[in-house]
Amino acid sequence: MPGVLVFTESSNGKLKKASREALSIGRTLANAAGGDLVAFATDAAAAEDAGRYGAKKLYVANAGAYSTESHTAALAAAVKEANPAILLFGGTSNGRDLAPRVAARLDAGVASDVDRLEWIDGKLRARRPVYSGKAFATVEVSGTPAIATTRPNAFPAEEAGGGAAAEVVNVSFDAGDARVKLVDTHTPEAGEMSLAEADIIVSGGRGLKEATNFSYIRDLAHAIGGAVGASRATVDAGWIDHQHQVGQTGRVVSPNVYIAAGVSGAIQHLAGMSSSKHIVAINKDPEAPIFRVADLGVVGDLFQILPALTEEVKKAKAH
C-alpha cells in the first residue's frame, strides 16, 4: 500500500537523529494517509533501529558512502518499488543535497526545511519558516511522491514501541558513472560537538571583547554538554571558525536550549536561532533586541554571569 518512505542515514546500525525524527513524523503521516511506514538505507544493519521507529520494511541499496549521483539512482529505484505517497528526508547536509536531485528526477515537488507536516485531503501540507523566520509559509505538495525535508529538532524522535526489525528488501539499481569523487574529509575541530546535532547551544557575540574570551563560552558549553555557537561579528573578527556561526549566513539551528551571551540579536542572527525551544539571553543592554525573543532574559555582565553559571552547572551535574 502506498505510504511513507523515509531516506535514512546511519552509522554502525544506529540511525542518525535527523533520520529518527523523520521516521517519527513519517509514522504519523502514514497513519493519516492509511499506508505503511517504510525506510531506505544503504546498510541493512539499520533494520533493527528502523523497526524500532515503526518502519515495516527497509529498502536497502548497496550505494556505498554518500555520493549524490549513486544515492539518487539508488533512492529513485527504491521509490519505484515502494511507490510511496510521501517521501521524507531528515534535514542533514546529505538529505538536503539529495532531496532536490531526486525530486527533479521524479518530477516531484519538495517542501524543504519544514517544521510541521500534516496529511490533509490527500495532500501533504507543510509549514516552513521563510524570510529568515520573519514569516511562516504553509505549502501544499501535490503529485506523487510528495517530498519534504524536515528541519532538525522540529519533530521529536519517538520510538514506535514493540516494533520488530524492519523487513529488509534489497534494491538493485544502476549507479551509472558517478563523476564526483570524495578525495578527503577534514574535521577541523575534532572533539567539539557540531551545532546541527546539539540539544544545547551556548553562543557568544562581540560582547566577549576578544578571541581568548571565547573560553567563557567553551567552558559553559563543555560543562553543560552543548555546542559552541557564535555571531557573525565574532567570526568576521577571526575569533572563531565560520563552522560555529549561527544565523542567516551561518547555520540555522533549533536546539532545545539556546544561550546567547553578548549577542545583540540582529535580525540575521535571530534568523538562525529564533525557532529554538528555550532561549536564554545574557546582555548588559536592557534594550538589546535579543530580549524580544528570549524566554529568559538576564540583564547583566556576561563576564560575571557565565562563570557563575558554569559553576552551578558543574555542581548540578555532580549530584
Binding site: 519538495v110 517542501a111 514569516a135 538576564v298
Partner: peptide
C-alpha cells in the same frame, strides 16, 4: 505548482519572556 503556497503568516509576537536583573551574578 507542485508546491503551492496556501498561506503566508507572520509569527505570533513573542511575549518577550521573563527578564531578570543580573547584578547579582
Amino acid at each position: 505548482q507542485r508546491v503551492a503556497t496556501v498561506a503566508l503568516e507572520l509569527p505570533a509576537e513573542k511575549s518577550g519572556g521573563k527578564k531578570i536583573d543580573g547584578a547579582d551574578a
